[in-house]
Amino acid sequence: MLQLTAIEAGYRDLTVLHGIDLEVRAGEIVALIGPNGAGKTTLARAIAGLLPLRRGQISLAGQSVEHLPPWMRIRLGMAHAPEGRQVVAGLTVADNLRLGAHALRRRRQESWISARIAVVCELFPPLLERLDHAAGNLSGGQQQMLAIARALMTEPKLLVLDEPSLGLAPALVADIFRLIERLRAQGIAILLSEQNARMTLAIADRAYVIETGNIALQGSGRELLGRSDIVERYLGIVADSTSANRRNSEDRHVRFVRALAKIFDA
């Protein structure tokens, strides 16, 4: 469904992505994990069309889209839930959802849009109860639901989710991830960009590890979950520390405290 070839992109004089190759097929969840600043959000923006490519091709359902503006990519079946949710606080939940269908407004009647709102809200009952509320009054978790619901308004074939778990409590994250699996079952291709590597790799069919603008590793979710260096780097599981390691960190700690004392004290 989505194919990225040799993508290079960045801002002004800073190149962030140095040649990314990536693929997402229909009905699969592809995880993109990596540290902060590796380029996940830059990649999401490049895919959406908000950022021009310096080099490379993007194809959606076999069609070349790297020269197309965002609204055309949406018409071709791409949808985004951006990092940080980005709901329009002053509009109601219903109007926010309508905004999601903005790119289709010429092709679809109001009745279709209203029906679509009902369908999408089935997945998110809390939104159904709050259609007339200002989006700014929703909690963080509800806003994340709104962001995903908004993305679903266009019946997308490809869904790009940029850090949906950011700032959410683990139980809520589990709910959202369960929903993502349901969407996969409907045949949507999903690119899930995340820092929460443990949960993401558990549901991903395939995964790419991105580091400083390059793909460092790729494989199936289970493969990567099993690799110990990934595990150490990204999953926060403390490896067995040898006594030398422990002594080192204690040593450093003492030096740290002493140095602080010298800076701030007599």
């Binding site: 965002p70 709901v87 509009l91 309508r98 407004r105």
Partner: peptide, 23 residues
């Protein structure tokens, strides 16, 4: 009009609007 709502979105959150395909 839808244009009017899009204008409001632009006012408040141009990034969100752009993601939704609003020019």
């Amino acid at each position: 009009t839808a244009v009017g709502k899009a204008l409001t979105a632009c006012a408040e959150n141009p990034l969100a609007a752009r993601f939704m395909g609003v020019d």
